[in-house]
Simulated assay, not measured.
Amino acid sequence: MIGWKNGRTPKAPQGFTVTKYADGLENPRWMYVTPDGDVLVAQSNSNYGFFKKIGAWIIGAGKSKSLKHSADVNTLLRDTNGDGIAELRETFLEKGLTNLLEC
Rank of each mutant, 00 (worst) to 15 (best):
S46C: 05
S46Y: 09
S46K: 14
N47D: 15
N47A: 14
N47I: 13
N47K: 14
N47L: 12
N47R: 14
Y48Q: 10
Y48G: 04
Y48S: 11
Y48P: 01
Y48H: 15
Y48T: 09
G49S: 14
F50C: 03
F50I: 07
F50E: 10
F50S: 06
F50G: 04
F51H: 12
F51A: 14
K52H: 06
K52Q: 12
K52M: 10
K52A: 11
K52P: 00
K52G: 01
K52T: 13
K53A: 03
K53M: 06
K53G: 01
I54K: 14
I54A: 13
G55A: 09
G55I: 02
G55D: 05
A56Y: 15
A56L: 11
A56N: 12
A56F: 14
W57L: 12
W57Q: 11
W57M: 10
I58C: 02
I58R: 06
I58L: 12
I58Q: 04
I59L: 01
I59H: 03
G60M: 06
G60Q: 04
G60C: 05
G60D: 06
G60L: 03
G60N: 05
G60W: 01
A61H: 07
A61E: 12
A61L: 10
A61W: 11
G62M: 04
K63V: 01
K63E: 07
K63P: 01
K63R: 13
S64P: 00
S64K: 15
S64H: 11
K65E: 09
K65F: 12
K65G: 01
K65N: 07
S66I: 06
S66D: 15
S66H: 08
L67D: 02
L67Y: 13
L67K: 12
L67M: 15
K68H: 12
K68V: 09
K68F: 07
H69W: 13
H69Q: 15
H69L: 13
H69I: 10
H69G: 11
S70D: 07
S70V: 03
S70P: 02
S70L: 03
S70A: 13
S70Q: 05
A71P: 02
A71C: 01
A71I: 01
D72H: 12
D72F: 04
D72G: 06
V73T: 12
V73A: 04
V73F: 02
V73R: 11
V73N: 06
V73E: 13
N74T: 14
N74I: 15
N74C: 13
T75D: 00
T75M: 08
T75G: 00
L76Y: 03
L76V: 06
L76I: 09
L76D: 02
L76K: 09
L76H: 05
L77H: 03
L77T: 01
L77M: 08
L77G: 00
R78W: 01
R78P: 00
R78H: 10
R78S: 09
D79F: 05
D79Y: 04
D79Q: 09
D79K: 06
D79A: 08
D79G: 07
D79C: 10
